[in-house]
Write a protein that binds this DNA or RNA. Structure first.
Length: 801
RNA sequence: GCGGAUGUGGCGGAACUGGCAGACGCGCUAGACUUAGGAUCUAGUGGGAGACCGUGCAGGUUCGAUUCCUGUCAUCCGCACCA
């Protein structure tokens, strides 16, 4: 009899062996077929690994291990996305250098990941905070700058009125500062921006060539939010100024009854003198400044606004004079910051008009516009619109745009919801932006030879009270000479956002120690694109889009060989607490992976996280479920007491063996880890029924299980004395013909309801099957038979009246 | 508000291009082994005494719907300076 399985000894033992052998070190061996599997590198937080982390890591570890067994040269790397706010805040609070905090956190994470037995190639570990790494982050920034894709712009930031620092959105809770509870307002600051909008069309088009799960593609498309419409100039009465608006519905131009501009719109200040209710306007502007864009759009059940008393606009198509309002539902960041309001055919305009008693004019027939906005564009016909009358919406759009262009009062315009990327942070713990500001020469890029531009040591990590990065206080570092004219100049003191380092990290893994380039051409040509990239849905619109943008830019500059970075993208669901809520300290439902590894073992944790449910959906933690997986592995362990010397499959299990190999192989590649494990459980249940398993069956079985539970299977492999190590074994093959059973049981239905079953031969002729079926349900065949249906190998359905 | 998803036993979840709903696991019940069992093994387990009824709800298409269509309700997630 075998002893009880001791995971503590076995897991440590094999982890050491794999380390000593450098089992998963991968060479740039260009003669072998490559496979690049990638998971999002973690932010090494102070809390240590969360049970959510192992879910995606195990999933791709399974794929990586399986692919190695199938003869691929597999790159499965890991690193640290270590710049960021929590580390900096921790450093401020505890007066420890963020570098030290990061080092400690990384070490803890690494130990935890190591204890899970992942097949990462640790020789390729990277860290975004390493100057040898951010050298190249800065280098890419310089390329973007030189290409005109990085520019400075006035952008609002969250400003705590008490701490006098800029805050991240996350640090603003219910409109007040998370730390001190004081009011947070929006303050305009000059910021570095990246022109991602320049790549908006390419980012949409590129989606056609990649294999992403559909919801990721849809999310990205919606985020980019391409819409086709028109810009139209309205005339401000009595002024030279034209007020330009953007609309997706130029066909409704005759239905305009008022205009709305965003509270930040520059025309308001410009015509200050003409506005009679200036105090009310100022008051409204102040109120709006306190809200984020999100809050403004959020559940805005009650529309608010103030009319600009003294200013009116002229509708360019019919000369009508209409009022101009300000309201916070119009955002300065989308379109032109001004809209024409057509209450009859837009819900927000309709609500606004109802509230303030503004007229509603129907211009598309088909609805009851006094009672609700009619927004259906598919069926409408234009009315009350002069030369557009009688046209369908789509035709009217074309005609009005032609008209506007001819008259020079408007034009067709494609707009994107996507906004340029705010690339500045007034923080310490980020990559310095390698730009020098010179009074004479403007913004001058640092010479490439000067990179990396390292973060200076500072006394305090707290932002200065005028909202600048703590680096600004380091005058020795800040004051420099202009590379262009040699005169006195100042370094940029803002740093890059955390997203910078993660926008290209997958390139660095291909050649992590290169000091001449971000990676060699040969390495990039061989490894790119990433074959399979898995990450969270929450990164779909930011990280994933940002990194595609950088990659496309690098591709256009012939630095990388592929137009898309990732061939395939999948997404895992969250792991929730036992109570079905998100795990959090405040809810007290956090599970620590270390505890699970100690008590049940890494293999159990890996198995459980794969078995917990559909990979793409969120799932609740269950300690009983963990126990069930441990029981499964114990049953696997005990199989060694029922092994026979037979190296073949036994005849009664041959079909089952081939079916299982087929199913497990396919499921591992299609995110169906839960059903792969279920089928392996079903297989050992068969062994247990017979109380016997052949050596051949056992060898195949543990090979299939190895990617999921690498330690226990390595130990069993060694106990049985199979050759070499299991991680070097060959993936089992199946014979398609042998997966098919000859005799099968099928259901017999009457009018679609199952009444019995019959056993048939797969090849049996229809007549024979139907005859058999009728015999089976003879006593229930009481009516007239109308139809007899036989779907080969599936079902018989007798339709009777 | 905009966008994305999800609703199936007591619970987590299966079900290929529409074809025996509930695989696999948990829990529960009974039995075996045992001084003992919170270990292990074996059997059973959607509801109903039954004809039958059952995949959020209401319709529809079909010989046949968890799967397709229309409407509806509920829940969860993201929203650009958290990562």
């Amino acid at each position: 009899m075998s002893e009880v399985y001791n995971h503590k000894i076995v897991e440590k033992k094999w982890q050491k062996v794999w380390d000593d052998e450098k089992a998963f070190k991968v060479e740039n061996d260009y003669s072998k077929p490559k496979y690049y599997a990638l998971v999002e590198f973690p932010y090494p937080s102070g809390q240590g690994l969360h049970v959510g982390h192992p879910r995606p890591y195990t999933a791709l570890d399974i794929v990586a291990r399986k692919r190695r067994m199938q003869g691929y040269n597999v790159l499965y790397p890991m690193g640290w996305d270590a710049f960021g706010l929590p580390t900096e805040n921790y450093a401020i609070k505890n007066k420890i250098h963020p570098k030290v905090v990061t080092k400690n956190n990384v070490q803890r994470f690494k130990e935890q990941l190591h204890a899970l037995g992942y097949s990462f190639d640790w020789d390729r570990e990277i860290n975004t905070t390493d100057p040898n790494y951010y050298h190249w982050t800065q280098w890419i920034f310089l390329k973007l700058f030189k290409a005109g894709l990085a520019y400075k712009s006035e952008m609002p930031i969250n400003w705590c009125t008490s701490c006098k620092v800029g805050l991240a959105n996350e640090e603003v809770v219910n409109g007040v500062c998370e730390r001190c509870g004081s009011e947070v307002v929006r303050k305009v600051k000059s910021q570095w921006m990246l022109k991602i909008t320049e790549y908006a069309d390419k980012l949409i088009e590129g989606l056609d060539s990649v294999d992403y799960v559909e919801k990721v593609k849809v999310s990205q498309k919606n985020w980019i939010g391409k819409s086709e419409g028109a810009e139209v100039d309205f005339i401000v009465k009595g002024k030279e100024e034209k007020l330009r608006i953007y609309t997706t519905r130029p066909d409704t131009l005759f239905g305009v009854t008022y205009m709305v501009v965003s509270p930040e719109h520059p025309m308001i200040e410009k015509y200050k003198e003409d506005i009679k209710n200036w105090n009310a306007v100022v008051e409204y502007k102040e109120m709006a400044a306190k809200k984020s864009d999100f809050e403004r759009a959020e559940l805005a059940k009650e529309k608010t606004g103030v009319v600009l008393d003294g200013l009116t606009a002229i509708n360019p198509v019919n000369g009508k004079e209409i009022p101009i309002w300000i309201s916070d539902y119009v955002l300065m960041t989308y379109g032109t910051g001004a809209i024409m309001a057509v209450p009859a055919h837009d819900e927000r305009d309709w609500e606004f008009a109802k509230k303030f008693g503004l007229p509603i004019i129907e211009v598309v027939a088909g609805g009851d516009v006094q009672n609700e906005a009619f927004t259906n564009v598919a069926t409408g016909t234009i009315v009350n619109s002069d030369f557009l009358n009688g046209l369908e919406v789509a035709d009217a759009k074309k005609k009005i745009i032609e008209f506007l262009s001819e008259k020079g009062i408007g034009e067709k315009k494609v707009n994107f919801k996507l906004r340029d990327w705010v690339f500045s942070r007034q923080r310490y713990w980020g990559e310095p932006i390698p730009i020098i500001a010179c009074d004479k020469c403007g913004y001058v890029p640092l010479e490439e030879s000067e990179l990396p531009l390292e973060l200076p040591e500072v006394d305090s990590y707290m932002p200065t009270d005028n909202g600048e990065s703590p680096i600004a206080a380091m005058t020795d570092w800040v004051n420099t000479t202009c590379p262009c004219c040699g005169g006195p100049a100042k370094r940029e003191t803002d740093t890059m956002p955390q997203w910078a380092g993660s926008s290209w990290y997958f390139l660095r893994y291909t050649d992590p120690d290169n000091n001449e380039a971000l990676a060699s051409k040969e390495a990039l040509n061989y490894w790119l694109p990433v074959d399979w990239y898995n990450g969270g849905m929450e990164h779909t619109t930011l990280h994933l889009l940002y990194s595609r943008f950088w990659h496309k830019f690098l591709y256009d500059n012939k630095i990388v060989p592929t137009s898309e970075p990732y061939q395939k993208r999948t997404s895992h669901g969250m792991i929730l607490g036992e109570n079905g809520e998100k795990m959090s300290k405040s809810r007290g439902n956090v599970v620590n992976p270390d505890d699970i590894i100690t008590e049940y073992g890494a293999d159990t944790l890996r198995t459980y996280e794969m078995f917990i449910g559909a990979f793409e959906l969120s799932a609740s933690w269950s300690e009983d479920g963990v126990k069930g997986c441990r029981r499964f592995l114990d049953r696997v362990w005990k199989l060694q007491d029922m092994i026979t010397d037979d190296l073949e499959y036994s005849s009664d299990l041959e079909t089952k063996m081939h079916q299982t190999i087929k199913k497990v192989s396919a499921d591992f590649e299609s995110l169906k880890y839960n059903t792969a494990i279920a089928s392996m459980m079903a297989l050992i249940n068969e062994f247990y029924k017979k109380n016997q398993v052949t050596k051949g069956e056992f060898k195949t079985f543990i090979t299939l299980l190895n990617p999921v539970a690498p330690h226990i299977t390595e130990e069993l492999w060694s106990i049985l004395g199979f050759e070499g190590k299991i991680y070097q074994a060959t993936w089992p093959e199946f014979d398609e013909e042998k997966t098919v059973e000859n005799t099968i049981e099928i259901a017999v239905q009457i009018n679609g309801k199952t009444k019995g079953t019959i056993a048939i031969n797969r090849e049996e002729a229809k007549e024979d099957v139907i005859a058999k079926a009728k015999e089976e349900i003879a006593d229930k065949l009481t009516g007239t038979i109308v139809k007899e249906i036989y779907v080969p190998g599936r079902i018989v359905n007798i339709v009777q009246k």
